[in-house]
Amino acid sequence: MTDDFSSEITLEVNDVTHRLRVDNRRTLLDALREDVGHTGPKKGCDHGQCGACTVLADGRRVVSCLTLAVAAEGARVTTVEGLSGEGGLRPIQEAFVRLDGFQCGFCTPGQLCSAVGALAEHAAGWPSAATADVSPDGPTTELDAAEVRERMSGNLCRCGAYPSIVRAVLETAARAAVTG
């Protein structure tokens, strides 16, 4: 059997199924940007060191720059373009705009996808490095600013929108808690 350097893959991106032939070297980030045409995910470092390329893959946040497209075969991917539905912006997006959770906007798609993922992780009871006691037997750690900062630390922002981002994430979490 001869080895091929490219592969046929299927990706479900923002609820749309795409069949693509990709160079095996192509990352999920480049496949989303160059093949699918979703340029929301950004290439800030291409080495998993900034978080600007963060997307949700099967509901979990990942850096798409270190994910090979071919290895993502069959994944259900949500990019920033897929966060808002027909009803308009998601609460986290609306909060980013209202509280000015960005300046240049380049890290924003990654911050937003990461925030969605981080909130789900917290809701699932996952501890973080900011959690004083990781024991599963105590009460679930409340999501405070320190928890949000730690959980969002994989998303660098050079403009320094961090405080506004933290406020937006906390507000969104509180709203979700009220509305269920």
Binding site: G40, E81, L89, V97
Partner: peptide
């Protein structure tokens, strides 16, 4: 341009 930046359209 806030909406463009939070939807990936920018």
């Amino acid at each position: 341009e806030g909406r463009l930046k939070v939807t990936g359209a920018a």
